[in-house]
Design a protein around this nucleic acid. Sequence first.
DNA 1: CATTTTTTTTAGATAATTCTAAATACTATA
DNA 2: TATAGTATTTAGAATTATCTAAAAAAAATG
Lengths: 219, 219
Amino acid sequence: MLSFVEENYLKAIYHLSESGKRAVNTNTLADEMKTAPASVSDMVKRLSQKKMVQYQKYKGVNISDEGKTKALHVIRKHRLWEVFLVDKLNFHWDEVHEVAEQLEHIKSPLLIKRLDEFLGFPKYDPHGDPIPDENGQLIEKRKDPISELDLGVNGIVVGVNDSSTSFLKYLDKVGISIGSKIQIKDRMEFDGSVDILIDNQKSITISLTVAQNILLSEA
Amino acid sequence: MLSFVEENYLKAIYHLSESGKRAVNTNTLADEMKTAPASVSDMVKRLSQKKMVQYQKYKGVNISDEGKTKALHVIRKHRLWEVFLVDKLNFHWDEVHEVAEQLEHIKSPLLIKRLDEFLGFPKYDPHGDPIPDENGQLIEKRKDPISELDLGVNGIVVGVNDSSTSFLKYLDKVGISIGSKIQIKDRMEFDGSVDILIDNQKSITISLTVAQNILLSEA
DNA sequence: CATTTTTTTTAGATAATTCTAAATACTATA
DNA sequence: TATAGTATTTAGAATTATCTAAAAAAAATG
Ligand SMILES: [Mn+2]
Ligand SMILES: [Mn+2]
Ligand SMILES: [Mn+2]
Ligand SMILES: [Mn+2]
């Protein structure tokens, strides 16, 4: 049985493994976990003993198959709870993460089975992130940041690269949420800002940074 | 901020304080918490430092007002989650306790507020136990075990003194649940067993032990 | 009331998780 | 490649929560 802390490390290692393809180094992980590098060294040894990661001194960690399964299971719970909070308890999408960080560690297979059922077997969480199935399978749909799409393209907002409260609040203010229809109207060469049409109604200009953080999939 | 373990100790101290009116002694608490008495000695010192209990060596512990408030808050969360599990996720009333033991430690005032709302502000949990309000107020309705009621009395099952799986399963088998209407028909002097009529339909005989564990309030 | 029994506390250890400071290994640069 | 700088690990300590064994206090008993 993994402790809460071990589960959190595994999640972090999993996420960091996904972005860059090779071994996760100690300082990166320490940064992600907001702990001292020395604490990370201790912990990765422990996870290595439990066969959750492969680890060699000074070489960084790679998550094992078993570790990945464990991480995806925690991520599944996290995202299902986020759906619950938004769909059933009327939480706003920028309020759910902290609570889900706690709820994701509750151990009860029956609970998750029933919750999944109660929520109607959702495939995506409120931020557009896919929910792994019971076996840790992810159905990843193709999605691109607005910054990389051509003029004229139509798409549906399916996710964000930045789930920070400040970014989500910005999106709310301009009227963008998961499911919004976006058309790309124009792009300024000098700074990468983009004119978009939201839900066939409202035209706004977004900065390059914003464009890089809104993910669309085909309409 | 109290740890999970501290919260559990406080709950136990609160429960034990309610039954017997005076100081809770170390061994009783050790028994309740399934730990060694030495561990209890350590912990009550810590809780005493945090002003959650009053404690003097060899004299046992008394819960403080602040401790009681904390305990009742945890109990509130426990019972609300039990209602959620039964009402929304179709758990059976004998399956909820273990999961609620975990869920009760989630820290989020908003979550509990919204959950309460979502559940329609329930006043009792699936076992008939009252749910404390946000301020730790308990509305305790008068309830008596069948063993102490007179012949002819009509009542509604509002709780049980024994929440063990085996007892709850027995109740299911004979068709008694929270809300069942019970009339007391006869009582055998030699062993205290009681004939009762359930929901105006089914007559059964229950043992004294069972009669002591089913709580009725006026119909 | 002296003795025995029971209860409770202390002492000393262990495990998990974290930290800071020091030592060591690796990398980049001149 | 020697040196400087960065990354990582080890050493040593603290905190929380637990245990067993031993010591001490309180309660029960004859
Ligand atoms: Mn989240
Ligand atoms: Mn999410
Ligand atoms: Mn319960
Ligand atoms: Mn209950």
